[in-house]
Computed example of a mutant assay.
Amino acid sequence: MTLGLQLGYWGALYPAAHIELAQEAERLGYDSVWTAESWGNDCFTPLAWIGANTSRIRLGTSVAQISARTPASCAMSALALDHMSNGRMILGLGVSGPQVVEGWYGQPYAKPVSRTREYVSIIRQILAREGPVSNDGEHYPLPYTGPGAWGMGKGLKSITHPLRADLPIFLGAEGPKNVTQTAEIADGWLPLYYSPYRQEVYADQLSKAKAGFEIAAFTLVNMNDDMEQALYPVKAMLGFYIGGMGSKQRNFHKELMARMGFADEAEQIQDLFFEGKRDEAIATVPDEFADEISLSGPRDRIRERLQDWRNSPVTSLLINGDATLLREMAEMVL
């Protein structure tokens, strides 16, 4: 099992420490570093900056939102970064949610699974560079012949020769159909919540994954002798995502928590969050759930529980933290 550094998205300001953290992670032997986007910074620009200031660590997007750019544009960014980093690029993709897609990108969210399949197919064609790219799907028709078309479009092949036709593509997926498709068409999976103690939740969906399929799981790590304090950041994150990262009608994080055995609690968390009772929503997150998807507590306890992650299908733990935490985890895992 390897380690990756998950830097996430920025928030209000540019986090200047990210370069130093990535360099420290590389020095410690971390396998990868990941950047994200929400409705602020993009994920490719900071990853390019990190790539220019490192030499070995793999560079991943976790995740590039597919509604933010066309498949061809996304492939161009990945292709360029792969060349400039000497083959270190991992293209992590995700559909985000209807609030962001329709509210920020101004696009319909309908049929995210089939949309993802088309998106990946087009990127694979571009990277393979075997001929002009075409797609007769409903989401990304190429050449485009729909309303407003001049009727002059033609299939094109990338001018730039990709460094690798097999540049790895990972997908961030939560729903059962999306995870099943991820195992079929992608090289790796980026689960948001994963419990090594409930492997049955995803067992059937991952059963057809090809050899070498990677699972890079984001895992909050909080070393603290006080378990209540150690679990609080995890519960705060879950309270926000399950309560507020989605509408009352559809919240994929809430639905996943329900599939993992905590349906009643997920419903209560969302109700409290929408009532403005955020502290109560956080307190309602079960300690058991927060503990299972994280590494929390005293150092020795975390060391013991790492064995449960090693015994799972997870191939890499993506952690977020300061240089001290990076060194602690490297000592225990690497």
Rank of each mutant, 00 (worst) to 15 (best):
C43K: 01
S32Y: 00
K111D: 14
S32F: 00
L142Q: 08
G97W: 00
N311T: 05
V95E: 03
R27H: 09
H18M: 06
H18T: 09
E24T: 13
F289N: 03
G243K: 05
F262S: 03
Q205W: 11
G151E: 15
A80L: 06
L7P: 10
I50G: 07
D287M: 02
M245C: 14
A230N: 09
A209D: 08
P176L: 00
Y9G: 11
R164A: 11
A209N: 06
L5Y: 01
K210Y: 03
S96F: 02
K235E: 10
I242K: 10
L231T: 11
Q268R: 15
Y30C: 01
A209L: 08
K254C: 09
P112V: 00
K177L: 07
L256T: 14
D136V: 13
A17G: 07
I123H: 03
A75C: 02
A22I: 08
G11P: 07
R310G: 04
N53L: 10
N224P: 00
F262P: 02
F289C: 01
P143Q: 13
M260P: 08
F274Y: 11
G137Q: 12
L47M: 07
E102M: 14
G8C: 11
H139A: 11
P132V: 06
A216R: 11
I126H: 01
E292V: 03
P298K: 05
